[in-house]
Design a protein around this nucleic acid. Structure first.
Length: 1087
RNA sequence: GCUCAGAUGGUGGAACUGGUAGACACGCAGGACUUAAAAUCCUGUUCCCGUAAACGGAGUGCGGGUUCGAUUCCCGCUCUGAGUACCA
């Protein structure tokens, strides 16, 4: 039979799913290999052709590693909390869980049809309570920890408490807030409980603090720095403003040094590491205190101004000090005479938006406070200025200005006529600052005549001696804000008592996201969770449940206890199917329930915890379920579900689909009656019980990066109810061996993940310091737009005539985007163009060579540019194997490139040609058992080695070319030798798995065994040549080729060359000055 | 501005430690099969000169260097893309 990719691909995808072919073993004697793709967010648009690029590469690698005898973990799941689903919910009122579910279904369908070898039994979703239970749990561990700088490691907070109890605050070297109390052990014990908790909060790795945040009013949330671009939100492009807010933060800065050092131990692309290094922004220097002159008279709060400098050696060149306008001492330092000028300057700075301030880096501006500081080393009096080139958020918000060495200081000094003192003998400062470190110091007191290294040492020593400063390392990286004022995220497992945060009990996890009526902030500006009814924490009567007994109050836990796990899974599957396809009965009934026809507001497809109820009245606490045939089989699951919902204070009534279909009005009336008789839902807390003495929960949810900061561990043990992953699983799988994804995660996900990983390592929860050993960035796939050129008439109006691209110079035209899906190799399908839009139905064309050629341009892939290519269409036309190979054939994985289907035919032809090797002229499967010829073995072993080399260095595009060469050779050899072809099938199977599985079984092998076959062993003896066609070159220019036996050594080869008649003709009588012979490579003669 | 990556035919790209530049594929041109088209197959295809072949010359962004020999190594520059931005 001819190559029927559709049947073949469907057949094998089904087979893999049915037989769980790619399920990784947890107990294996094989070495482990963990291949991971970056967690996708299931967006509504589904996959475009750029997404699978990385997945295909990792899949080829995973399949290859299986053939090489590894136990491969290659999982997939969804980072399913996030803004887009919530935005959609706000616009449509549909629960984000439903949107997310639908999107995931689309993703899954698209992923499946590309034939990936994912172990789907380990799928995770960050928005599932089973999963976020452990995200919340890790949050709790962070809350219960502090960072001990003495041992460069996080420790339980109990260690700190013990130290406080025994020694007070002395001897503690912690990463903590700036304002901490000093106390002895007795003073600590004398503190009230609240005072102690408030103090501990300053040490916890996750803590509350007032911070300036990027507040986006349009999105109603706080954005991370990397989600803001030029003062606008990256998603949606809404304006972002600075706002002070009480926020959960994570002390990632505690790990700055380890995050930096760790980069040297991992195999990541250099640009990516560089981005992280810049983001961490380590600078080594010194902090120096400049005493404020005459400070008794005005300044009381502080005696000095502290600055950070990386050039402490230039301290004798300081001629003024500059503070950020926001600096806390500005007010106190301003003299009455300068008050006007300073206030005017501050007002002017505030008015400038972030954007203006960035655009305008040329203008020099500032104001004099009227006060002075003294240079701590020579007592010189220098002026204190304020200027907006000094940033409040970096260092101490103050700089010592050295105009001779720093260009900004130089411009400032010139502009305000401040002194400029040279400090190096070789400094050239006539027109600009000279930051040189070479030369010897001048005008510099005790370091005069010294070189840089000596000078730094002796200045730091002197400063330490007089207590005016010390060597210091500064980081640019700030603590990460960990909270957003949104609905669709993990609830923070914290409640507030007397204004202080406390964790809920571990046994009460997961804290399930409550229902809200709208996904918007409350009228008083609180986050959407503020809308949740009775969203309050009631402490369990006994502080923690007895050993071995879990709280029965939370939904997922209780559900699993009341229901058999099998039913639990069935129910999950059922709700999944059901949600995607509302039944006819549901649709009919909805028409009778909507718009309060029953007298009560009914919601459709509303999420109650992790379940979606068909219909619900929140007021009455009544859930209406419609049961199809499915339920008859799963009555027990339904009962269990009812039990859980009852437990949550809901009544449940059920109808059978047939009842609704035969008499919908009766069903509606039954519902109406029921609603009238039952009382309004009694107020219960999500944790059960009444709400007497309950506390407010935290209302913000976790940010997008929470769930993705540890997910690779969940895949190791995805269904564990007792731990985030078992110790055994973590110790076996350890870390990710290969991680593939885009570089857009450089300073977000990849930094936070490393941070959580290091923390988890400190807590002995995991074993590796770095989570991702090897990382590869796949390049972006850009769009390739096509254009048609509309003829413009004399009045400048567009006509309905279109000019082919080659002729546009002769006409006046304007370009218009045209859908790339109706263009083939830049040739417009005129018929489909006319059908594309009504207005083009009568379009006329100026053709060249009978064809309409379109113009093209590389742009971002986007709907508005009509250049989005969906993998579905290509798979329908060529099949998944062709798509897989073509995406690889496009070029190096890491390189960005425009998508362009121009070459896809060639890949398809190649696969067909491969198929044909196994078939005769009549497409009947025929292979021979003859001994393979030397030439056949040579072709085979060339490709065996080539694919090994290419895959190991992630050069997938060159393998595809080599496959083509091999198949071309075997076709020329008319090869249909079984042993050769069988090995070819194994080698090709990671690239084109469906076709290879089919051929594998046709060759008589057991179905499904190909994935775990053994990669053929390379044998170099088949490649040994006895002759080589040497290129003979004269002065480096190749003139001819000459075949010479490889058994000859260099001098014998030279003799053969010099005796050759053609060579002599080229030499034209001259004798070569020198002859270079590289055996098996080249002969070069110098004349 | 700084940091990083990159630049090879009409197009995507190959050339791994310096050793025949343009593999493989697309496109294009010519041919075979066909009444015709599609599909398929065959041949050619870096550019320039020459009627064709042999042959000759130029050629990997630009300028220079090292070398018997440079797409590859070194120096300077141009352009493109990405990241970052008054970081003291």
């Amino acid at each position: 039979m001819d190559y029927q990719f559709k049947d073949i691909e469907q057949k094998w995808q089904q087979f893999w799913a049915d037989h769980q072919t790619f399920k990784a073993e947890d107990n294996s004697t094989k070495p482990k290999y963990y291949v991971l793709d970056m967690f996708p967010y299931p967006s509504g648009a589904g996959l475009h052709v750029g997404h699978p690029l990385g997945y295909i590469a990792s899949d080829i690698f995973a399949r290859y590693k299986r053939l090489k005898g590894f136990n491969v973990l290659h999982p997939m799941g969804y980072d399913s909390f996030g803004l887009p689903a919530e935005q959609y919910a706000i616009q449509t009122g549909q629960h984000p869980a439903i949107t997310t579910e639908t999107n995931i279904a689309t993703y899954r369908r698209q992923l499946d049809q590309i034939g990936f070898s994912f172990d789907w039994s380990r799928e995770v979703r960050t928005s599932s309570p089973d999963y976020y239970k452990w995200t919340q749990w890790i949050f709790m561990q962070l809350f219960n920890s502090w960072y001990n700088k003495a041992i460069e490691k996080a420790e339980p907070i109990s260690v700190l408490v013990k130290h406080f109890e025994e020694h007070g605050s002395t001897g503690i070297n912690a990463v903590c807030d700036e304002e901490i109390l000093s106390f002895n052990a007795d003073e600590w014990k004398a503190m009230s409980h609240d005072e102690q908790q408030a103090e501990l909060l300053k040490y916890r790795l996750t803590y509350l603090r007032e911070s300036t945040v990027n507040w986006c009013p349009a999105l109603g949330t706080v954005l991370a720095n990397d989600e803001v671009k030029d003062g606008f939100s990256e998603r949606g492009g809404y304006p972002v403003e600075q706002k002070k807010m009480m926020q959960w933060s994570m002390r990632i800065a505690a790990y700055a040094e380890r995050l930096l050092q760790g980069l040297d131990t991992i195999d990541w692309p250099e640009p990516l590491k560089e981005m992280q290094r810049n983001w961490i922004g380590k600078s080594t220097g010194a902090s120096v205190r400049f005493p404020i002159e005459n400070q008794e008279s005005r300044v009381k709060s502080q005696e000095y101004i502290e600055v950070f400098t990386t050039r402490v050696d230039t301290i004798f060149g300081v001629t003024f000090v500059v503070l950020a306008p926001e600096h806390e001492l500005v007010k106190e330092l301003t003299t009455p005479e300068q008050k006007g000028a300073i206030e005017a300057y501050i007002t002017q700075t505030k008015k400038k938006s972030e954007l203006d301030r960035m655009a305008d880096t040329k203008t020099v501006s500032g104001a004099f406070t009227g006060s002075y500081v003294l240079n701590p080393l020579n007592g010189e009096k220098v002026q204190i200025w304020i200027a907006d080139y000094v940033l409040a958020g970096y260092g101490t918000g103050a700089v010592m200005a050295v105009p001779s060495g720093d260009q900004r200081d130089y411009l400032f000094a010139k502009h305000f006529n401040l002194p400029i003192v040279p400090i190096m003998d070789i400094q050239q400062i006539e027109t600009e600052a000279d930051p040189t470190k070479d030369g010897r110091y001048i005008n510099s007191d005790f370091i005069n005549g010294l070189f840089y290294n000596e000078a730094v040492k002796s200045v730091v020593a002197k400063l330490e001696e007089i207590g005016a400063g010390k060597a210091k390392v500064n980081f640019r990286m700030r603590d990460a804000i960990f909270g957003r004022q949104r609905y669709w995220g993990e609830p923070v497992p914290v409640y507030f008592k007397d204004g202080l945060p406390y964790l809920i009990e571990e046994s009460e996890l997961p804290l399930v996201l409550p229902e809200v009526d709208k996904y918007l902030p409350t009228e008083s500006g609180e986050p959407p969770l503020g809308r949740a009814e009775n969203w309050l924490y009631k402490q369990a009567p006994s502080k923690s449940p007895p050993e071995g007994e879990t709280s029965s109050s939370h939904m997922a836990g209780s559900y699993r206890e009341t229901a058999d796990p099998v039913y639990y899974e069935q129910l999950k599957d059922f709700s999944r199917d059901n949600r995607n396809q509302p039944t006819e009965a549901e649709n009919i009934l909805w028409q009778l329930l909507r718009n309060e026809q029953t007298g009560f507001k009914i919601r459709r497809q509303h999420a109650i915890g992790q379940y979606i109820a068909d219909f619900v009245s929140l007021q009455k606490g009544l859930i209406i379920e419609l049961d199809g045939h499915h339920h008859k089989l799963n009555k027990e699951a339904d009962d269990a579900r009812t039990e859980v919902l009852n437990h949550l204070g809901f009544d449940v009534i059920r109808f059978i689909n047939d009842e609704v279909l035969s008499n919908p009005q009766k069903v509606a009336n039954d519902i109406k009656q029921k609603l009238q008789v039952i009382p309004d839902r009694k107020k219960v807390s999500p944790a059960g019980g009444d709400l007497e003495g309950a506390y407010a929960y935290e209302l913000s949810t976790m940010p997008g990066w929470a769930g993705s900061s540890w997910y690779w561990y969940r895949y190791m043990d995805a269904h564990n109810d007792h731990e985030f992953a078992s110790k055994k699983a973590v110790e076996y799988w350890k870390d990710v061996d290969l991680y593939i994804g885009g570089s857009e995660h450089a300073t977000g996900h990849l930094l936070y993940s490393r941070f959580w990983n290091k923390f988890m390592k400190d807590m002995s929860l995991v074993v590796e310091e770095e989570p991702f050993k090897k990382l590869i960035n796949q390049g972006m796939i850009q769009g390739r737009s096509n254009f048609v050129y509309r003829l413009v008439d004399e009045e400048g109006r567009g006509t309905n005539t279109f000019v082919s691209h080659g002729l546009i110079k002769e006409y006046k035209t304007s370009p218009l985007h045209v859908d790339v899906n109706i263009v083939d190799n830049d040739i417009l399908n005129i018929q489909r163009f006319k059908e594309w839009r009504e207005e083009y139905a009568d379009a006329e064309f100026v053709l060249e060579g009978g064809k309409y050629i379109c113009g093209h341009e590389v742009e971002k892939m986007s709907k508005s540019k009509f250049n989005v290519v969906n993998p579905d269409d290509l798979i329908a036309r060529y099949g998944a194997d062709t798509l897989r190979m073509y995406e690889m054939f496009l070029g190096p994985l890491e390189q960005s490139k425009p998508w362009n289907t121009n070459g896809i035919e060639g890949v398809f032809k190649f696969l067909r040609k491969f198929w044909r090797l196994f078939h005769n002229e009549q497409w009947v499967f025929t292979v021979s058992n003859a001994e393979p010829s030397k030439a056949e073995l040579k072709s085979l072993h060339k490709i065996i080695r080539k694919v090994e080399e290419d895959v190991e260095r992630f050069s997938f595009n060159t393998s595809v070319s080599s496959f083509m060469i091999a198949v071309n050779e075997l076709t020329d050899l008319k090869c249909n030798n079984k042993s050769i072809l069988q090995d070819m099938v194994i080698v090709l199977s990671s690239y084109a798995p469906h076709m290879c599985e089919e051929l594998w079984t046709l060759l008589g092998n057991e179905a499904g065994t190909l994935s775990y076959a053994t990669y053929p062993k390379f044998n170099g003896t088949y490649l040994i040549e006895d002759e080589f066609a040497y290129p003979i070159s004269i002065n480096g220019k190749t003139k001819m080729n000459l075949s010479i036996s490889l058994s000859l050594d260099a001098s014998a080869t030279e003799a053969v060359v010099l005796a050759n008649a053609d060579v002599l003709r080229y030499l034209d009588g001259k004798s070569p000055k020198k002859v270079i012979v590289v055996k098996g490579r080249i002969v070069n003669m110098v004349v």
